[in-house]
Design a protein around this nucleic acid. Structure first.
Length: 564
RNA sequence: GCGCCCGUAGCUCAGCUGGAUAGAGCAACGGACUUCUAAUCCGUAGGCCACAGGUUCGAAUCCUGUCGGGCGUACCA
């Protein structure tokens, strides 16, 4: 539709030049936009204003010339017979506004019914191989609310990119190596000793949650009471492995219940086992990207935009987290991804530059690496801050939220705001299943329409509640109907914008907007009109709305209920 | 100090690849169910878009600075 208008303007400008009413043949990129106000028509172009300096002419005058050219040509027709542009006019400082005939919009409905689940999809991704890595929480405790936000953002970005034609793989990086795992093992081991009757001072830097005690108990049950007599180093290793496995299984289950799925789970330990990390360090050493100083090995990140160089191997011989991350990211590109997207909590933002530096140092381009920084979730209870700490064992888990609020409401709330902004998540508010919860507003549209379609089938107006061809669409001429179709038409654009900017909340905003337009229409006009032809036309429209709502909700991982 | 994010209606936030009269939800007030689901709708009220400069025909949007809030700034992860 937009291109159609664009062509009209381009043709008119060329024609005006040929007829020498416009002095310059230079035609800049023509921008056509949907108007904000209906009084400004359906589309407008600022062409006259942007080209004013080139043509050395007042915008108003250029606009006038263009309009005459448009009117003179037989532009405005698609197949030469139907006139789709009803009116063209100059407005304001030089905008050219286009008013389309209603019938220009009617084919949109058919298009949706035919494309069905594919409506809104596109190929802007050109099948580019993209990896989205998200959550990647350490398996040292259950997922909490903050992880939930990262989880839905990553999951939805994955769905949206797929829908927009990217070849997407979703991955979870398991930090199953390093100090935090040893701490986990120690925590469990100490609780186990306490349970076995030993007096132990439980250190502050150990994990204190009740789940640690439960794990200790399970180990005792499984290995018997003799376990507490074991050699400490060996026992801690067993505890660590056992606990990490159990916790990871819990994480997987919680994510599944939250509707979040992964194509692959990647183990950090595997980077050590395969000697991949070692090889990566050697490789960079031979390229003089890693050097030795003060007994430690440093990566020359400063040369690639970081504030300073960073340690990869400490002077005690242990590798840093950064070291395995370098190897991991290098490995991702070697697996064939053109582009890698990491979803991180905002508290890790200082880490971006050094990873980016390591990627550029590997000979890749900075544009091939994106980080979605998800701002922190501000947990409230009845409007008051609610502090959480994994170490202290005081937190609200993701599971708690999903159990109490439900998957749909939780996901929808997490995606309701741009991830660039902090999110207030009020536990009491989220638990409410009333109209304050926007998810019901959108889902209600889907359920309402299903109700109408079922009734229509019962009354034999339609033979099925799902059909692929609209009927009597030219009867759709109410302003609310045209407005609804315009919004339906904008779905694909919104998906594309969401994919390009990696902002899933664009889909949220779109759905709220569509839902609002539908509810307004529903209250004003009866779909099942006595006029059977009109009823069929409206049923077609309403079915199209239903399909778009479903497609949108699917991208956010929220269900579209038939009944509420 | 330096870096990243944010500052828009009483509250929570959209709008930010520059466009015409800055939007929505909640809260407030007034209306609409014998009619397809009132988990809905319609109306009223509410704004120096933090502040100051700059670029531009045009700035909530881009640039610079100031102020305020959040988060970072390890041979931690």
């Amino acid at each position: 539709m937009k291109n159609f208008i664009k062509n009209i303007v381009t043709d008119a400008a060329k024609k005006a030049f040929e007829e020498k009413v416009l002095p310059s043949s230079q035609i800049p990129e023509i921008q056509v936009e949907e108007t904000k106000h209906e009084s400004h028509g359906d589309f407008s172009t600022n062409f006259a204003m942007t080209t004013a300096s080139i043509q050395k002419m007042a915008p108003q005058k250029i606009a006038q010339i263009l309009i005459s050219a448009i009117k003179a040509g037989n532009t405005g027709t698609t197949d030469g017979s139907e006139i789709l542009v009803e009116k063209v006019e100059i407005a304001g400082p030089g905008f050219i506004n286009f008013f389309l005939a209603n019938k220009a919009w009617h084919p949109v409905v058919d298009n949706i019914l035919v494309q069905d689940k594919l409506y809104g999809s596109s190929d802007i991704g050109k099948n580019e191989k993209v990896q989205v890595e998200f959550v990647s929480a350490n398996p040292t405790g259950p997922l909490h609310v903050g992880h939930g936000r990262g989880a839905v953002v990553g999951d939805s970005v994955g769905s949206i990119l797929s829908f927009a034609g990217y070849n997407v793989q979703k991955e979870y990086y398991i930090n199953d190596s390093g100090r935090q795992i040893r701490t986990l093992g120690t925590s469990v081991w100490l609780r186990l000793l306490q349970r076995a009757g030993k007096e132990i001072d439980f250190p502050d830097d150990c994990y204190r949650g009740d789940y640690i005690k439960e794990l200790a108990q399970k180990i005792l049950e499984q290995y018997g009471s003799k376990f507490s007599e074991k050699d400490e180093t060996e026992a801690i290793a067993v505890c660590a492995k056992y606990a990490a496995d159990k916790i990871l299984n819990g994480i997987k289950q919680d994510l599944t219940d939250f509707g979040v799925t992964f194509d692959q789970w990647f183990s950090e330990q595997s980077l050590y086992d395969s000697k991949r990390l070692e090889k990566t360090v050697d490789d960079f050493k031979s390229k003089d990207l890693i050097y030795e100083k003060d007994g430690a090995l440093w990566f020359r990140t400063q040369g690639f935009g970081d504030e300073k160089d960073r340690v990869v191997v400490r002077n005690n011989g242990l590798t840093t987290y950064f070291a395995s991350d370098i190897a991991y990211h290098k490995e991702k590109y070697e697996r064939g991804f053109d582009r890698v997207i990491d979803v991180w909590g905002a508290d890790h933002h200082g880490y971006i530059k050094r990873i980016d530096a390591s990627i550029v140092a590997s000979g890749l381009k900075s544009e091939q690496f994106d980080v979605i920084l998800v701002q922190l979730v501000n947990l409230l209870r009845n409007g008051k801050p609610f502090q959480m700490s994994t170490r202290a064992g005081q937190f609200v888990t993701l599971k708690d939220i999903v159990d109490e609020v439900g998957k749909d409401a939780a996901r929808f709330l997490f995606l309701s705001r741009s991830h660039d902004s902090g999110l207030d998540f009020d536990l009491e508010l989220a638990k409410q299943t009333n109209s304050e919860n926007p998810v019901y507003y959108v889902q209600y549209v889907h359920a309402r329409i299903t109700g109408i379609l079922l009734k229509a089938k019962e009354e034999k107006i339609v033979s099925s509640i799902d059909f692929k061809k609209g009927e009597y669409l030219d009867l759709l001429n109410e302003p609310e109907e045209i407005r609804l179709i315009k919004i339906l038409n904008a779905f694909k654009e919104n998906v594309e914008k969401s994919a390009k900017t990696l902002h899933p909340h664009i889909i949220f905003t779109y759905l709220m907007n569509l839902a609002s337009a539908f509810h307004g229409y529903y209250n004003k006009h009866k779909v099942l009109s006595d006029d059977i032809k009109l009823a069929k036309a409206r049923l077609s429209l309403v079915l199209a709305v239903k399909k778009v709502i479903r497609n949108g909700l699917t991208l956010l991982g929220v269900s579209a209920p038939e009944r509420m």
